[in-house]
Amino acid sequence: MIGVGKAKQYANVLDKPLSRGRQEVSLSAFAFLFSELVQYNQTQVDNIAELERRLEDAGYAVGARVLELLCHREKGNRRETRLLGILSFIHSTVWKVLFGKVADSLEKGTEHEDEYMISEKELLVNRFISVPKDMGAFNCGAFVAGIVRGVLDSAGFPAVVTAHFVPIEGQQRPRTTILIKFAEEVLRREARLG
């Protein structure tokens, strides 16, 4: 994600067209900003669950805005109303705009009907982050989980979204799985729609 396109300067932000194609920012700049975000939130909390929640809330605001923008830019002011539609929208469209690539996989949970998983071998936000041993299973992917929750919630699919490290066999680094657990009402609506 290196290399910044030279954008034309607009005096008024409202004059700027929304569909400006793909713009990329420096990965280093993002990594430092994200690192500061985590460090700041760390000073505001006294336990890890609280830190996770704060990161998720930060992501939620991004998700809500991203949905708004992408529905306008990519889908001609229409948004997905079906479960699989919105999931593949997140897996491909949202991921591509945010991280420059489609997510590695989108799977349905085997044990529960209401669970879906988006997995990423090397999540962009975790690229430079090593979580210390004493923080247990804490994952900075909570921010991305928050983005996913923001998109889903704003699109009318309330869900609980969490980020987890999942070890892969034969690999030193675990992958990150974003676990999505939809609310009951969503599944009931889906069943009714057939």
Binding site: Q42, I129, P132
Partner: peptide, 8 residues
């Protein structure tokens, strides 16, 4: 990369 960009 891996030390200075690490929030921990």
């Amino acid at each position: 990369d891996y030390v200075l960009k690490n929030p921990f």
